[in-house]
Design a protein around this nucleic acid. Structure first.
Length: 506
RNA sequence: GCCGCGUUCGUCUAAGGGCUAGGACGCCUCCCUUUCACGGAGGUAAUACGGGUUCGAAUCCCGUACGCGGUACCA
């Protein structure tokens, strides 16, 4: 008997997809896959005024890059659509009205001014944020405080109103969190949350319960910031569909920045990305650099994110997405928040660049190199070069400085490291070496090195004294892979031509 | 203020009553290498505090402190 698992994630299209958001999707995804369940993605677009054009596409592009595509969603289809909140408006309305009929919720006609007034009146040092709760609701303009006739009149006049849940006065509501165990709340401390807003859109509280029921969600991971509103959701399940049918929740610990909760501004402040991909703030028009654009590869990004709140109990740190799916278990998810460390993130990227064959990220690097003015036609040659230098690349942009000399001869040669010790003997050595290279039939690093060393011996010069000059001739400076590897990749013609061009410059 | 959730090296973490609290990042030293790296060998550094329970506590219980979250017609 297999467990039927459906998990959901409801990203808001208004704020980009930052580290915490992607991690929530990731854990939902891993859990669903691990249990052969379905991964459903519902889109929050409740507040039309904040909806940003293109934001939904941005979310799907991010998930595609990460390899976390949902089985069912607004763009992938499925049997539980529609998946956009705005297209499910009628459903929420129906259930909200049902709650009012049953006496679990009520109409509230209070204007913004009236709410302000109430809060100002009740605000004290001990109670800095007065709530709309059982202590005040009978003094407000709502269907509990007003007579039936008054309420009906207001409704008939189309008076703007919301529907609020009627929280019990004093009751303990508890549920079992998959990560934290039993968590309980006193309903006296929870306010009468708005369920249906004045514009007919649901709040998260109503939407999440209705959708989870209709989409038959069995499990859901969400951020820890939702824990305090869990009692509202438990009650809604009890009133609407039965508490026993409620999905199981896991509230994930927060991801922290260098000081406190990780925020968008931390990125600018400390110089690291907080979004998976470039995100343009619709209000300011500013673009924040994403991990992708910073030169991270998805394998590393996902791996790094997965480890920020989970590990399998062993000392293994490098996991592919498939491995994560196999090994992910709820029991190993942490309770405490994790501070994001960019140095460690870069380490993951470096490891994955080394681990993967260059063909995996060749296209990204190619675009990067072409931006720098190179014209690349030979992918095979490109892969050879990238594999030769990948050990010294932490982010993809490092490939430029580590490999450009494989595609064009250095314009300037930094002769200073050897100038002082340069002499006529060395000059003639290179003249001879260049000639000798022309007759090599087996163009391999070992052969080139052999020719180099025997010639050096004949000239009675230590090979070590000659290796640096050779490097400078081939690449222009003190960097790059082993010299003979470079020569081998460059090819006979190019190597000879670079030496011939350079040995008179010293 | 009230409610909730947390707390092991600077950071991410392992150890779920019992060996000198283990690994990784970072930093430092050495080896390899006449480039820069990779790699290898070492080093540095932690159970927030105070009480219990127990032969024995990082681990279980209570309190304190600190951190974070919530307290909106935002999610």
């Amino acid at each position: 008997m297999t467990k039927k698992v459906r998990v959901r994630f409801a990203p808001s299209p208004t704020g980009g997809l930052h580290l915490g958001g992607v991690r929530t999707v990731l854990y939902n995804y891993l859990f669903a896959r691990h249990h052969n369940g379905d991964f459903i993605l519902r889109i929050e677009d409740t507040d039309q005024s904040r909806f940003v054009p293109g934001a939904e596409e941005y979310i799907f592009e991010t998930l595609k890059w990460c390899g976390l595509q949902p089985d069912e969603s607004a763009v992938h289809g499925g049997t539980y659509g529609p998946y956009r909140q705005s297209e499910r408006k009628h459903l929420y309305k129906k259930y909200a009205e049902e709650l009012v009929q049953k006496g679990w919720a009520y109409y509230a006609f209070d204007t913004a001014q009236e709410l302000d007034e109430m809060r100002n009146r009740l605000r004290t040092d001990e109670n800095p944020t007065p709530q709309y709760d059982h202590t005040v609701r009978m003094n407000m303009r709502n269907s509990l405080a007003l007579s039936k006739e008054e309420t009906n009149t207001l409704l008939q006049q189309n008076t703007p109103h919301v529907i609020r849940i009627k929280m019990p006065e004093h009751e303990t509501v508890s549920f079992t969190d998959m990560i934290r165990g039993e968590v309980s709340f006193d309903t006296a401390t929870v306010d009468d949350k708005v369920l249906l807003k004045g514009d007919g859109m649901p709040t998260y509280h109503l939407a999440v319960v209705v959708d989870d029921h209709l989409m038959q969600i069995s499990h859901a991971f969400r951020g820890e910031e939702w824990l305090p509103s869990a009692p509202v959701h438990v009650l809604l399940w009890r009133y609407l569909f039965g508490e026993e049918a409620m999905p199981q929740w896991a509230h994930l610990p927060l991801i922290l920045g260098p000081s406190g909760k990780l925020s968008k501004r931390d990125g600018a402040k400390y110089g690291f990305p907080v979004f998976a991909m470039n995100w343009q703030d619709p209000k300011t028009g500013e673009t924040v650099e994403g991990f992708r654009e910073r030169g991270f590869i998805p394998e590393a990004f996902i791996n790094m994110l997965a480890m920020l709140g989970w590990n399998d109990g062993t000392e293994q740190e490098l996991f592919s997405l498939e491995e994560l799916v196999q090994k992910f278990t709820i029991e190993k998810v942490h309770k405490g928040g994790a501070r994001f460390d960019f140095e460690k993130a870069k380490w993951f990227n470096h490891e994955w660049i080394k681990k993967l064959d260059a063909a995996n990220y060749r296209n990204e690097v190619k675009i990067l190199l072409e931006h720098n003015g190179l014209q690349l036609t030979d992918d095979q040659y490109l892969d050879k070069v990238l594999n030769a230098v990948k050990d010294r690349c932490t982010v993809l942009s490092d490939f430029w400085s580590q490999s450009y000399f494989f595609f064009k001869a250095p314009k300037e040669i930094d002769t200073t490291p050897v100038k002082a010790k340069w002499n006529e003997e060395k000059r003639s050595f290179f003249k001879n070496f260049s000639k000798a290279l022309g007759s090599i039939s087996d163009w391999s690093p070992a052969t080139i090195e052999q020719v180099f060393k025997s010639l050096a011996e004949q000239a009675s010069i230590k090979p070590g004294e000659l290796q640096l000059p050779l490097r400078l001739m081939l690449v222009g400076g003190k960097f790059g892979p082993p010299v003979f590897d470079i020569a081998a990749i460059l090819g006979k013609e190019e190597t000879i031509s670079r030496i011939d061009f350079a040995y008179d410059l010293f």
